[in-house]
Structure formats: structure tokens, C-alpha cells
């Protein structure tokens, strides 16, 4: 049983068919890459999975439950985390607060209880604090826990975005271009982090233009082109596929 099943999904924006009859699955604990030239429909697919858009046709199933058309927060609550291309942080809060608030919201204890400092709420808060500290440690952000998010270097802001997503304890994490714009050593560190995330028991679906990183990181790869699925398979197979080379011809060297 796959963790996520995308079944014959079509999405139309006006006259433009952004996705046409796309199907694939994500298995538990794999790192699946989603690649394709600009405008192929990768971000649109992420928007469909996380519930920002509704597919016009087709279904999406998560853990055998249909999630097509559910509200974004319901889907997030079911265990799908997402990182945008541009990190969405609360810039005027500290690194720690960013993660702590995420945890807090995840547990959703009623606000009035926290306001009254009931014992249960206090205990919960202590647990959240510990957890936030652990996640920051894991993402190598422990040293900057009291910095304002706005003051972090770009790479660390991305780590923080991932830390916030981890605070919601997802089973599936959608990463949109996590290493784009990073130098090779930063890329290596981030790739390593993504592997460690998988070791925490989280399945990863990743969109990335950096082919070297994708090829080394992913177990399997799905290639989109002009809204349609071109091919899917292991990195070695994708690298040698004639259609993929054509689609990317003149754009990037694989």
C-alpha cells in the first residue's frame, strides 16, 4: 500500500492545461524526486496534494483516505507537511518561537487554557519546549535559537522552514527546491539532512532542479513535461532515457 496515491489527476487554469492525467505513487519511507522543465506543473501538483487547489479530474489518496478537496489545514493535520520555494517564516519572531508556535498549534490545546495556565497546559508547554529544542538541535539551529528569523542567512532560513514543518510531525514532507541556489558544500549538507529526515520515519517528495543532488538523493524519480508524466524510475534509468534528454535538451546537462 503506497503512502500517497495520485490517480489520473488533471488541473486546468483557464485555457492552460497545467496537469493532464497524471498518476504516480509515493511509497513509505522513500525519497521520491519530481523533476521537469520550467512550467511542467510541479508546483501545481504540490498545490493539489496540499489542498491549495482542487484537481479538476482525478483523485489523491493519503494512507488510503481520499484527500481530494479537503481543506488545507485538514490535509496538514493528517500528516502532510510542505515547504514552499520561498521559506515562509514569521520573521519578527525568534527561531525558537517559530518552531515552538508550530508545535503548539499542532497540539491545538484551547487558548483559554493556556491563558489560565492550567496544569495540563503547563505540562504540555514544557513538553513542547523540549521538543522544539530537539528539532532545532536536529536541524543544526540550536546555536541560533534566540536570533530573529529575519536575521538568519538564507540557508539557515530554509533549515528553519523545515524545522517548522517537522514540528507538525508529518508523515510525508513536500520539499519545493530545497537546494536551489546553494553551493556544492551547502547542497551536500542539506542532502544529508534530507536523508536523516527519512531516517526519522518521514517520507519525502522533492521537487528540485539541481540534477546532481536529485540523482544522488532520490530512490525513484517522476519526470513531468508540459503537464504530463513522461516517465518514472530509478535515477540510473532516468539519466539514460531518451525522452528525458529531449525534454531537457539545451536547457541543462544531465
Amino acid at each position: 500500500m503506497p503512502l500517497l496515491l495520485v490517480k489520473n489527476v488533471t488541473k486546468v487554469f483557464g485555457a492552460l492545461i497545467a496537469l493532464r492525467d497524471v498518476s504516480f505513487e509515493v511509497n513509505r519511507l522513500e525519497i521520491l524526486g519530481l523533476i521537469g522543465p520550467n512550467g511542467a506543473g510541479k508546483s501545481t501538483l504540490f498545490n493539489l496534494i496540499s489542498g491549495f487547489h482542487r484537481p479538476d479530474k482525478g483523485k489523491i489518496l493519503f494512507k488510503d483516505t481520499e484527500i481530494t478537496g479537503l481543506r488545507v489545514d485538514r490535509i496538514a493535520g493528517m500528516g502532510i507537511g510542505r515547504i514552499f520555494q520561498e521559506p515562509t517564516l514569521f520573521m519578527q519572531e525568534t527561531v525558537f518561537e517559530n518552531v515552538f508556535s508550530g508545535l503548539h498549534r499542532h497540539y491545538r490545546e484551547p487558548a483559554w487554557k493556556a491563558f489560565l495556565h492550567t496544569r495540563a497546559a503547563n505540562r504540555e508547554e514544557a513538553v513542547s519546549r523540549e521538543k522544539a529544542a530537539e528539532i532545532l538541535e536536529f536541524m543544526d539551529l540550536a546555536a541560533m535559537r534566540d536570533e530573529l528569523a529575519a536575521n538568519l542567512p538564507h540557508g539557515h532560513q530554509r533549515s528553519l522552514a523545515i524545522a517548522i514543518a517537522l514540528a507538525c510531525e508529518p508523515e510525508l514532507l513536500l520539499l519545493d527546491e530545497p537546494v536551489t541556489g546553494m553551493n556544492p558544500s551547502e547542497t551536500a549538507v542539506m542532502s544529508d539532512k534530507i536523508r536523516q529526515i527519512r531516517e526519522r520515519g518521514i517520507t519525502v517528495l522533492i521537487v528540485e532542479h539541481d540534477m546532481r543532488a536529485v540523482m544522488s538523493l532520490c530512490d525513484r524519480i517522476v519526470v513531468l513535461n508540459l503537464g504530463e508524466k513522461l516517465v518514472e524510475g530509478t535515477p540510473d534509468r532516468i539519466k539514460s532515457d531518451q525522452r528525458v534528454i529531449e525534454a531537457y535538451l539545451g536547457k541543462q546537462v544531465i
Binding site: S50, D73, A76, T88, I164, C168
Partner: peptide, 8 residues
């Protein structure tokens, strides 16, 4: 949107 993604 970011808050919705945290399940709220």
C-alpha cells in the same frame, strides 16, 4: 497560508 500548513 503558512499557518494553514501547520494544520490550523
Amino acid at each position: 497560508e503558512a499557518v494553514t500548513l501547520q494544520g490550523v
